[in-house]
Amino acid sequence: MNQAENQKVRFYQTGTYTVGNRLLDGDIRTVQASSDRSNSLDSGHRACQGCGEALGARYAIDAAMRETNNQLIACNATGCLEVFTTPYPETAWQMPWIHSLFGNAAAVATGVAAAMKVKGRQDVRVIAQGGDGGTTDIGFGCLSGMFDRNDDVLYICYDNQAYMNTGVQRSSATPPAARTATTMPVGPEPGNQFGQGKNVPLVALAHNIPYVATASVHDLHDLERKVKKAMSVRGSRYLQIFVPCPLGWGSKPCDTIKLARMATECGLWPMFEGEYGEITNTHKLRRPSKVDGYLKLQRRFAHLFKPGQEGQLAKMQDLADTNIRKFQLLEEGSDDE
């Protein structure tokens, strides 16, 4: 499955992993490779250097725009994505876009979808989007309700693992051991607690909705394929995209994609797809690695590399190993299928 499915051509110079490639037929390049991509999120937005969320949002929305022939409305939760794109009266969105409150993006989207149904505009599709705070904490009630009603909305969560807009506070998507403004690296077990937080993709799956997937900004082909799949079905769908945050994670802006890649390849960010409550596909690891390399590039995990923290570091590796086992991320002859 995954790439092998839609990538028949093999062995090009840069294989199937680059954004495009002059040697590939147009239909197997990504939407992002096309010079007429919609650029739904345009230049001039005020995201930090190397923002993973800005990148993830353009990837996902451009792909959805292509699938819906540009008949798309986005409902945004409060958060970085809203603030850096749309400081009134200026906006970076080149599409119909609405922002209401922090916690109600799913409910607003439900309303927009209902309105479109009443108007007989089934061709207009609706996306709700927000960060992990607006999704997994503040907007969680509305989100669960939307899943329960199976409203025709694709909800995209851009997961940067904390409340970055307000100054890096812990959310229920913050990983264990991470330093945030509210989980300082002090005491015998510094940083965020182990054993807390929510795995919202699995929670979404438990609602038996038509489609749930996790994706990452480092693997554009995979991400676009998942958006395309999500737009091909009706009902509630959920996509959580891993988007590193240089500011909140204390990483170099140029390392955003590299970190996303490393998180996936060490097992800390498992990529899977599920339909109606069942996991149907997992993204196998091309070059499996240990967690250290990924963690070392981020200041929020710097305390894990101090003397006496070996146990905490081992617990991080355990998390990754558990994911690898649970989601069956390895397969024989791992590097490529």
Partner: peptide, 8 residues
């Protein structure tokens, strides 16, 4: 090699 990565 015109892989479009920078563009993407």
């Amino acid at each position: 090699l015109e892989c479009d990565n920078c563009y993407g």
